[in-house]
Design a binder for these strands. Structure first.
Lengths: 149, 149
DNA sequence: TCCAATTCGATAGCACGCTAACGATCAGCG
DNA sequence: CGCTGATCGTTAGCGTGCTATCGAATTGGA
């Protein structure tokens, strides 16, 4: 029964490692590519907005942004209208990486699911969605005493 | 297509967070419970053996073992026959935590997959296994130029 | 027997996630 | 107009993974 948890962890770890290796060939780490995916679409977001879209905490985005700034992938600009806000803007270097990285990501997904049929992919998609819904809505995990069904 | 990767990451993250919270109530962090699971079964393993079983690197086990030693969950003993080896032995405290932690883990798995039918669980299990096989055997990820099918 | 190579665990340093606490800025009320 | 509270980003510190490197111990060949 707890086997599924193990499989999920293992699969995710393997995929993450493969993604990191693929991304690294384009000068981007696995966590940074998630930031890029959002900023390619909507440049100039704040760390807080980015964190909300990526479903991570703000400090996580701040740290990643610092590394990306050091790597020349983005620049921080204070919002002229609200001095509390910081807006993250991609550099040309980051824009140039869009196509190859998106392609690498697509290839990885294809590779990983190559031995699955379309129906199996749909089932997987559906099952994962159900688990995510389950874990988000009834967030309180089962403790001694039963859960809230 | 890359959607499945996102879902997998998100599901794993939610489950990990829930597991960490559940385990923390028993004084054990999520990474430590994996070490416990193995040592409950086979006490006195070396960090290297443990790492192989958990499919992580040795430094990861060493660090976790250090934290667990500080928490009074295990003790290190040098192997009398081979001075290079360190054997990890659980304390009574760690053994006492076996039942509640195993139960918490079971409840979590049940909770997470509560909205899935048995057939859906089998499909999920099968799909994840296929992905893991795919990623382990043909480890080299798809790079520009095609993969090795 | 003794030295070189191998095999261990430990350490250092990084990426990426988290919570807690801090400082700066803005908004709103008196 | 000024002060209080809310809202930001940042920093500090931790857990869990990784690679690279080091020191200690064992092993095997000369």
């Amino acid at each position: 029964m707890t086997e599924v948890l193990r499989l999920l962890t293992r699969a995710q770890k393997l995929l993450r490692a493969a993604a990191d290796e693929a991304m690294s060939r384009h000068g981007v780490r696995v966590g940074q590519n998630l930031v890029l995916e959002v900023l390619w679409e909507t440049d100039g977001l704040t760390p807080g907005e980015l964190a909300a879209r990526l479903q991570v905490t703000t400090p996580t985005v701040v740290n990643t942004a610092t590394r990306m700034e050091a790597a020349g992938l983005l620049v921080r600009r204070r919002d002229p209208a609200d001095g509390r806000l910081v807006r993250l803007h991609l550099t040309p270097k980051a824009r140039a990486a869009e196509q190859p990285i998106a392609e690498a990501r697509r290839l990885l997904a294809e590779h990983a699911t190559a031995t699955l049929t379309d129906e199996e992919r749909r089932h997987l998609h559906s099952a994962l969605t159900k688990i995510i819904e389950r874990m988000t809505e009834s967030a309180p995990p089962p403790g001694p005493g039963g859960d809230g069904d």
